[in-house]
């Protein structure tokens, strides 16, 4: 009752005729407001609060314990002079380009070939997508075993009679990053296939008929007509893969543990190791902030193109 009376009593002139409508509406929405409290708390405390806290810590001189001083860009200077971080950044760049490119090309080919009215389509789709259901730890361990030179693929081919065959990428500092790419593509290209196949199935049937009448070869139709039409889906798939790239951690830990040496270190692992093993909070949060900046740089154009520009066009 207090709520119903007090606003009108407080400033009757300002609220005027709406004085009694307002508290009623406020009370009606009370349930919804209370229900949204957990969401509000999560957004403010975790998504905004923790993020800002991390960024703030990256400008301090924290080591084992967090301190609240201001050290300017000191941690970032150290970060960019750190060989392990620089190697991690290069690795994630190589992995990102090859993984995204590989998944898109392979996933698109799978989608196109499966779109040819093939038999057992359901079975094939199930086979292509099942790795996506598995943990990256499982994927990493499976590939670690298969690529292991003493007992895996290399031995298999040598036993077939090719004694000089060498495939030791997983223990080779120069090549180890490419084994992660192979395992990553194995895990994720089925997802790209599923997204793009849904897109291809949505392409207007009449376009195909028209193209056939004009005698345009099928591959040409896919490349020049279907691909641009499913462009938005390609973009969505790319963004999803890109975010996975920045998060890359489980696969590396399971498959190579960052080795041999530090040859397959990645930024997410750099952050984790410096937070929980090397107790260097300042450096870890600086690296985490760099990851944040990277994701924002990837997402901002996409969000702009997808939401901001489109609403602008509609109004």
């Amino acid at each position: 009752m207090v709520t119903a009376r007090s606003p009108a009593a407080a400033s009757p002139r300002m609220l005027g005729g709406r004085a009694d409508a307002r508290p009623a509406r406020w009370r009606r929405q009370l349930g919804a407001k209370l229900a949204l409290l957990p969401l509000t708390a999560v957004v403010i405390v975790v998504y905004l609060g923790c993020m800002l806290w991390t960024v703030r810590l990256s400008f301090s001189s924290s080591k084992l314990l967090p301190v609240g001083d201001w050290a300017g860009l000191q941690q970032y200077e150290r970060l960019f002079a750190n060989d392990r971080f620089l190697l991690s950044a290069i690795n994630i760049g190589i992995f990102g380009v090859l993984f995204i490119g590989g998944c898109l090309v392979f996933g698109f080919l799978l989608a196109v070939f499966i779109d040819q009215r093939v038999r057992a389509e359901g079975v094939l789709r199930t086979v292509f997508l099942f790795p996506h259901a598995m943990s990256l730890v499982v994927t990493g361990l499976a590939w670690q075993w298969f690529l292991n030179p003493t007992l895996g693929l290399q031995k298999l081919v040598r036993d077939l009679g090719f004694a000089g065959f060498t495939f030791d990428w997983i223990v080779n500092q120069q090549m180890v990053i490419y084994t992660l790419v192979i395992a990553g593509i194995w895990q994720a290209s089925g997802l790209v296939m599923a997204i793009l196949l849904a897109g291809l199935r949505g392409v207007d049937e009449d376009l195909w008929k028209a193209a056939r009448v004009d005698g345009i070869p099928a591959w040409r139709v896919y490349l020049s007509i279907a691909l641009p039409l499913i462009g938005p889906m390609v973009v969505t798939a790319t963004v999803l893969l890109a975010v996975q790239v920045v998060k890359l951690y489980d696969l590396v830990v399971a498959m190579t543990r960052g080795g041999p040496g530090i040859a397959s270190e990645v930024p997410a692992k750099f952050v984790m190791d410096h937070l929980f093993e090397r107790n260097n909070i300042g450096l870890a949060t600086a690296a985490a902030s760099m990851m944040l900046v990277t994701v924002v740089a990837i997402l901002a154009p996409w969000i702009y193109a997808r939401y901001v520009r489109e609403t602008g066009r509609r109004t």
Binding site: Y47, M51, W53, A284
Partner: peptide, 18 residues
Amino acid sequence: GILLAGAFIPYQVFLYPL
């Protein structure tokens, strides 16, 4: 909107404060 955008942020950004 903030919640959805948060889904894209790497977990490493939240871990230590949590």
